[in-house]
Amino acid sequence: MKKTLVFPLATLTLLVAACSPSGGETDSDDTADIAKKARVTASATASPTPTLEEIPTASPFILPALKGKPQSSAVSLLRDHHFRLGLITNRAAHKEISLPSGGNFGRWIICSTDPAQGSRITNSTELYLYLAQTASACVRPTPKPLPKKTYSAPAPAAKKPDPMSPHTCPDDGSQPGYACTSTGKVVVEGEYCAGADHGRTLKASNGRMATCEDYNGWRWNA
């Protein structure tokens, strides 16, 4: 098996110089050809210089409908458009929702976006995703109505009997309101009582129980 010897460019140059005739006998054409072949050989054996791969640039595209999709699905879709994921901001759909502290939004549902679906965006557009844990949680809860104040009508005041009007009262004076004497008048504490009322105890006009007794004369005394 034949082996191919590869010499560095500097070594080939020295060999060419050594093989070239000295003085005025040098053939300039042959020397140029040999040097050119040596450079071609050296170029072929050298490793190519790596070049940076061109970074793909996102073309403007229409933002698709992301509402109702999991956040992870939306990210994958945007990645296919070479959208810069660092421009995505996740936010709660409304103030009653608390986002997870670890930033694990993969299964959270997109309630809305800003810009809205159908907007024309590029890879330099800031995109806000408003999230909730479930699709039903996207709807802001309706606040409970405040209880209505009810006002009850005041109870009618008890009508006081007219002291001047006649009354029919039981003998024991247990009827609410004013009791009446044997003459049909209201019992008033301290006033004189008739002979038919001697010893009777009735409810006086001041609400106290008064007895018709002889106390400096027969009077209604409590």
Rank of each mutant, 00 (worst) to 15 (best):
K2D: 15
K2C: 01
K3Q: 07
T4Q: 09
L5N: 04
L9K: 12
L15W: 03
L15A: 03
A17W: 10
G24D: 15
E25M: 08
D27A: 12
D27Y: 03
S28A: 12
D30K: 10
S43L: 15
A44G: 08
T49F: 12
E54C: 06
P56G: 01
T57F: 02
P60T: 06
I62V: 11
L63S: 07
A65D: 15
L66D: 05
L66R: 08
L66G: 00
G68Y: 07
P70V: 07
V75S: 12
L77S: 06
L78M: 13
R79C: 06
H81W: 02
H82T: 07
H82Q: 06
F83N: 03
L85D: 04
K95A: 15
E96A: 14
S98G: 07
G103K: 02
F105V: 12
I121A: 02
I121P: 03
S124G: 00
A132D: 07
C138R: 05
V139E: 09
K148S: 08
A155D: 09
A155H: 03
P156R: 13
K160I: 13
T168S: 15
S174R: 10
S174C: 12
S174N: 13
G177I: 10
Y178T: 13
T181W: 02
G184E: 01
E189G: 13
E189T: 11
E191Q: 05
C193L: 02
G195D: 15
M209N: 15
A210S: 08
T211P: 07
C212S: 08
D214C: 01
D214F: 06
Y215N: 04
W220Q: 01
A222M: 05
